[in-house]
């Protein structure tokens, strides 16, 4: 029993909604009532993907949210404050390290500080949402350059993106039917991760050649999934046959019973059954 209690406490701590803990932080307490740029980020962050996954103010901006005074924002407590534009990639890259690397190597990253876009340009800051291909759109891209190349990359990647989502959905469905989809799930996940590295290269050639490769890999996975779908179909076909045969047996037995019933009634016509002799 004692062990059980410990596990329950552990579980409740591990899975407690982080927002509840974060809400008590001094950052939110003090900043929420403030006007303008000092208070707005709190509301923007609430409901964002960062907030939902327990990433709070101090995760990015540093400082100590447990101190209820200005000391929470002292340099000794690792407070970073608002990053300068050139520092934004390393600010976000402290967690999204791989993406930062891809970005810095890309044309976008090379143009950092010379009017080139940084993370916030496309992803926004506090109200950040799960990234999707929709970030590549005419409005956003044409702020700096023509949309043509971006559109070309987007449509090349959209195919792979759709395929990944649909395969993920299908494996979830097959899993619920009892199929062992662990391996397939892992290979989809691995392709997905490699594929996501493409997003920040912003290089048409790389995107074109690599999406081709990913498509081929997904094609292989698709065949495995198709084999499982075929198996589901085969089972239903076999089942249909068995049910029909059994159903026919059942009907024939009912008819057979009727032949006896007819005989029984011929000997003893229906009516009150005779009492024991």
């Amino acid at each position: 029993m004692a062990k059980q209690v410990i596990v329950l406490i552990l579980a409740s701590v591990l899975f407690a909604p982080w927002s509840a803990l974060a809400a008590e932080s001094s950052c939110v307490e003090c900043h929420r009532p403030q006007p303008g740029a000092l208070g707005d980020p709190v509301g923007q962050w609430e409901g964002s993907i960062h907030q939902r996954h327990g990433i709070n103010c101090s995760s990015c901006h540093g400082g100590d949210p447990t101190i209820m005074s200005m000391e929470a924002m002292s340099l000794e407590k690792g407070f970073l404050g608002v990053p300068a534009e050139d520092d934004i990639p390393s600010f976000c890259g402290s967690c999204h390290a791989g993406v930062m690397e891809d970005y810095l190597l890309s044309a976008h990253g090379q143009a950092l500080g010379a009017g080139g876009p940084h993370c916030v340009t496309c992803h926004g800051n506090h109200a950040v949402e799960l990234a999707s291909l929709d970030i590549i759109n005419r409005d956003l891209c044409t702020r700096c350059h023509e949309y043509g190349q971006a559109d070309e990359m987007k449509s090349a990647m959209a195919k792979v993106d759709d395929k990944i989502s649909s395969l993920q959905e299908e494996t979830r469905r097959l899993r619920k039917l009892g199929f062992a989809t662990e391996k397939i799930k892992n290979s989809i996940f691995s392709v997905r991760n490699q594929f996501h590295q493409l997003f920040h290269t912003v290089n048409v050639e790389t995107v074109r050649s690599q999406t081709e490769e990913f498509s081929q890999e997904l094609e292989k996975i698709d065949q495995q999934v198709a084999a499982m779908h075929q198996e589901v179909k085969n089972r239903k076909l076999l089942g249909g046959g068995v049910v029909v045969v059994l159903g026919a047996i059942c009907i024939l037995l009912v008819l057979l019973r009727k032949t006896y019933k007819d005989e029984e009634e011929r000997v003893h016509p229906p009516g009150p059954p005779s009492m024991r002799p």
Partner: peptide
């Protein structure tokens, strides 16, 4: 006859 009816039920659910 009733046994085969239950078998139909069993097979229908299983498949």
């Amino acid at each position: 006859a009733v046994i085969s009816f239950f078998l139909v039920l069993l097979a229908a659910i299983v498949f």
